[in-house]
Design a binder for these strands. Structure first.
Lengths: 207, 207
DNA sequence: ACCTGAACACCGTTCAAGT
DNA sequence: ACCTGAACACCGTTCAAGT
């Protein structure tokens, strides 16, 4: 298990192969199949292993509005995943599916219901936050990989040749694009979602 | 090119291999390397190819608020990608990076600026929408794959054994989870983001 | 119960050689 | 310019055999 973690840490998820892991622990590839049924099971075990060790922050102070509880849980979820973006690739399913990770949806849904949302609306809020979080983490991980790869990106090449007549806003942004898109806007995004669904909900959502 | 599209359509992105494509067009794997430098270039060509054919919807009616323009462009972007989730895997980078796809950020940023946002805030809005969109599409594609795979999901197994003391909200939701998370909440999400950033922006964002 | 060896059906890519 | 054959260094997984 720890050998598998080490490999992922150093070489990414695609670096973890059954054969590579076997080499790492000094055994034949086939020996692994005596402990897990297939590679998917190995990944699920890895996920559970990590999730069990993740910290669960307490709720924010009483002075915070009900929406702040949702925001705090979302940020905690992002922080827990930011260092291990491979997890997002593993749980390609809809939701965080280690029992140990269910604390996040539980907390977000609970805070949303306390804030006055119907259970259905609270689930929607959680899923919207999850999709946003998964997308943000994947994008950040990819950007980091590309940055360390060095060399000119395909993006910068495209941006250098923009047609100002057809894409005026982007052309105007020009070389600032790189700098602007490097900023961490996760918090801003969750707060917007919470503002839009809890604090300034759509008409008719709160009878 | 069309052979590659056909393979992806039928067997997913991981079904597209250089050797498989070569077999499809009746050539040696090595013949392909005379037309593309490596597999990444093939994927980039595939992306451009698709992006060039995507429709660009006109703006919504004049009666619509400024935020509606952003929402409409986001929904168009989602619709354009929903049928081809493999694209999201290919552009693992931060942004839609075919010249033909830049229409989406251009339109969203333009609408945001017209709505009164500063250029920086407009870029933030676009990126938040993009992360949300990428996450939603990936999750939906994964869910669809799992549904057609049939068989009991790991998720349903976890949900069946929930500890009601530790996770009361989720336990209460119980078997409704499957049904609730199957709903399409994309529009609700974008509208929330737009409401939170354009129509009810954070304090101090609009001097 | 736990492990190995050999094999099967795959990958992306390089290199030298052919027309 | 365009293609092939053979090779290299890999994959996940099965099956029969060993202790």
């Amino acid at each position: 298990m720890s050998a598998a973690h080490r490999i992922i840490e150093e070489e990414g998820l695609q670096g973890l192969t059954m054969r590579r892991l076997a080499r790492e622990v000094g055994a034949t590839p086939m020996a692994l199949y005596h402990h897990v049924h297939d590679k998917d099971e190995l990944l699920r075990l890895l996920l559970d292993d990590y999730a069990a060790g993740v910290p669960r922050p307490g709720p924010p102070g009483d002075s915070a509005g009900p929406g702040e509880h949702v925001v705090a849980a979302a940020i905690a979820m992002r922080d827990a995943l930011a260092g291990v973006p491979w997890i997002v690739e593993v749980l390609r399913a809809d939701d965080l599916m280690s029992v140990h990770a269910l604390w996040y949806p539980e907390t977000i849904i609970d805070a949303a219901v306390r804030a006055g949302l119907a259970p259905e609306a609270a689930v929607d809020l959680y899923r919207i936050i999850w999709h946003y979080t998964a997308g943000e983490i994947t994008a950040r991980a990819a950007a980091a990989r590309q940055r360390e790869g060095g060399g000119p990106t395909y993006r910068s090449q495209v941006f250098a040749n923009l047609d100002a007549a057809e894409l005026p806003r982007l052309a105007e942004l020009g070389e600032r694009w790189e700098e602007l898109t490097a900023r961490d806007t996760y918090d801003k995004g969750v707060r917007a979602i919470v503002r839009g669904l809890v604090e300034a909900p759509p008409p008719g959502a709160r009878p």
